[in-house]
Amino acid sequence: MSYLTKSPWIIHYDASSCNGCDIEVLACLTPLYDVERFGIINTGNPKHADIFVVTGSVNEQNKEVIKNIYNQMPKPNVVVGVGICACSGGVFRECYNVSGGVGELIPVDVYVPGCAARPEQIIDGIVKALGILDKKYKDSKKGGDFK
C-alpha cells in the first residue's frame, strides 16, 4: 500500500449542481461522518489534492474550470463524480446549458450515483477511489512516469 491511500487530500468543486451533493460532501467532513479518520483533508487547492470530487453537471462555462483544476492536480490523482448530475447530467440533462456528466470532460474514476448522494455513499466512493489511487501509483512506479 502506498501512503497515498493513507492521506488522500480532496478538492471539491461544484460544477453546476443544486448544492445538494455539495453540502453532503461537506457533511462528510463534519463530526458525524468525519472523513479525517481516513486522513482525508479538504484542501481546496488543486496543487495539494489527490482526489477531485466533482458534483454537478458540466456546462460550457465550467468546462474550463474543471479542466484547469484537473490539470493543476499533481499525478497520481483520481476523479470522483458525486451525484447523478456528475454521472450523467441527471435531472438537468436536458437543460440547454448542461452538456452532461463530468465523464465527458475528464476521465472519471469513480461514479457515486444518488440524488443527492448520501455521505455514506460518498465515503464509499472515496474509499473505492483509494484503491485506484494506489493502483495508479504502482503503475507509475513501474512505468517510471505518471500517466
Binding site: 454521472c87 472519471v108 474514476d109 461514479y111 455513499q121 466512493g125 473505492k128
Partner: peptide
Amino acid sequence: VYHEPVLNGPL
C-alpha cells in the same frame, strides 16, 4: 438502500 459507487458508467 443506496446504490454502490461504480467505476464506469452508464449504469
